[in-house]
Structures are given as structure tokens and as C-alpha cells.
């Protein structure tokens, strides 16, 4: 009867809170674990698609983690990759159909990148590293946490690129006309794909200067 007498762990114990907050900074999936970069960069020319993408990834990571964690004792290890892919692909199809139904224009902009959540390494990586060996509730939190860490970077990059590239945020003009009259120009370079890489490089630089323990060995 040891299980019954053992005190139940509170839902938001310190350990569980850590699962949620750690991936946002110190264990960020993009800048530290180097997972899921593929889709992170291509959708960030504007804030809105970046936000929609971020929400989709949070949903997929959270539920994929939850489902795999529930199934973890029934999955034969040899075919686990296929099982994981099937779970992820079904979730992504759901997300894709929902996006097409409710935000069709954004779904057009995201084009193939919604489908590419299937091979987004964050989802696979967290399933392998966490959900296969942990209970459903921590797995769900871990999924949400990693999704949030991913979203944070996506939104930061999207914000910078849209502000300097088009002078707008979420489609609204924020840079006043008087600036343009003084000779300010939108930096069209920011819209181009390579700038996303350079901005992420700079984010990594800032993050690592603030957290020296993340600096790589020579």
C-alpha cells in the first residue's frame, strides 16, 4: 500500500514548474538544444504568421508529449519512431485543417511549414528525451514549456523583422509618417531569409553573454 500512503505530488510543485520555465531560457529548444530551427526561421518575416506557427507548435508538442507518455508502456521500442510519427502526423493534420478553416490567409502564408511541424525536431526530440520515460502530467508540462521557448524566439525574431523590415507590427503601422519624411527607409533586407539566421545568431550571442555557463568549449 505504499503507493496509496505516499503523499501526492502537488500539480505545480517546484519540479513541475521548472519543467515549464526551464526551456524558456536556460534550456531553450532553439538556442541551446538546437532543435526545430527549420521552421523557426522561415515563418518569421511577419509577426502574425510567426504567432500562429508558435501556437500550432505549442499545441502539437503538448499533445504529442501527452499521448506518447500515456502510450509509453505499450510501445515496442523497435517501432517507436513510426508510432511517434503517426501520432505527430495526426495532430499536425488536425492543426492544419483547423488553420485552413479559421485563418485561411495565414495558412496560405505558412504553406508547407505547417506540414513540416511533423519533422520539427523539437517534437521528436522531446518525445524521445522526455515523454518516453515520464508520466503524462510532467510530459504535458514539458511539451508546453518547450513550445513556449520556441514561441519566444519566434516572436522575438518576427517582431524585429517586421518592425525594421516593413515598419509595421501585426500589420499596423507603428513607425510614424514623420520619420519617413525625414528620410527613414524600411530595411528591405530584414524581410529576406538570411536575416532571420543572423538575428537568431545575435539572440544566441546575447543569451550566452548573460549566461556564461552556456558558452561552448573551445
Amino acid at each position: 500500500m505504499s503507493a496509496a500512503t505516499k503523499e501526492k505530488e502537488p500539480l505545480f510543485s517546484a519540479k513541475n514548474r521548472k519543467l515549464l520555465t526551464n526551456p524558456i531560457n536556460l534550456n531553450n529548444p532553439i538556442t541551446v538544444q538546437v532543435l526545430g530551427i527549420c521552421s523557426a526561421l522561415a515563418v518569421t518575416a511577419k509577426l502574425k504568421p510567426a504567432f500562429v506557427m508558435a501556437v500550432s507548435v505549442i499545441v502539437v508538442t503538448a499533445f504529442a508529449n501527452l499521448i506518447i507518455s500515456l502510450l509509453r508502456n505499450g510501445i515496442p521500442p523497435r517501432i517507436r519512431i513510426i508510432v511517434q510519427l503517426v501520432v505527430i502526423a495526426s495532430l499536425v493534420i488536425l492543426v492544419d485543417q483547423l488553420l485552413k478553416a479559421f485563418v485561411y490567409d495565414v495558412s496560405r502564408q505558412l504553406s508547407v511549414f505547417v506540414g513540416l511541424i511533423i519533422t520539427n525536431c523539437i517534437v521528436m526530440g522531446r518525445l524521445e528525451a522526455f515523454a518516453m520515460g515520464n508520466k503524462p502530467w510532467p510530459s504535458l508540462l514539458d511539451g508546453i514549456g518547450n513550445g513556449l521557448g520556441y514561441s519566444l524566439i519566434l516572436i522575438m525574431v518576427g517582431f524585429v523583422r517586421e518592425l525594421f523590415g516593413s515598419g509595421t507590427i501585426w500589420g499596423y503601422h507603428v513607425i510614424p509618417q514623420s520619420f519617413y519624411d525625414l528620410g527613414y527607409r524600411n530595411n528591405g533586407f530584414m524581410i529576406l531569409p538570411p536575416m532571420a539566421l543572423i538575428i537568431v545568431g545575435i539572440i544566441i550571442w546575447i543569451q550566452r553573454s548573460r549566461n556564461p555557463e552556456l558558452v561552448e568549449e573551445k
Binding site: T31, V34, P193, P194, M195, A196, L197, I198, V200, G201, I202, I204, W205, I206, Q207, R208, S209, P212, L214, V215, E216, K218
Partner: peptide, 17 residues
């Protein structure tokens, strides 16, 4: 030091792009 490894790789990839 903070740029070593991943950071500089990102920036170089951007330049190559």
C-alpha cells in the same frame, strides 16, 4: 566566447545565404 560554436555558425549561414 558567447558567440563560439552555434552563434557564429548561424551568422555565417546567414552570410552564405
Amino acid at each position: 566566447a558567447p558567440l563560439r560554436g552555434l552563434g557564429i555558425t548561424f551568422i555565417i549561414t546567414g552570410l552564405m545565404g
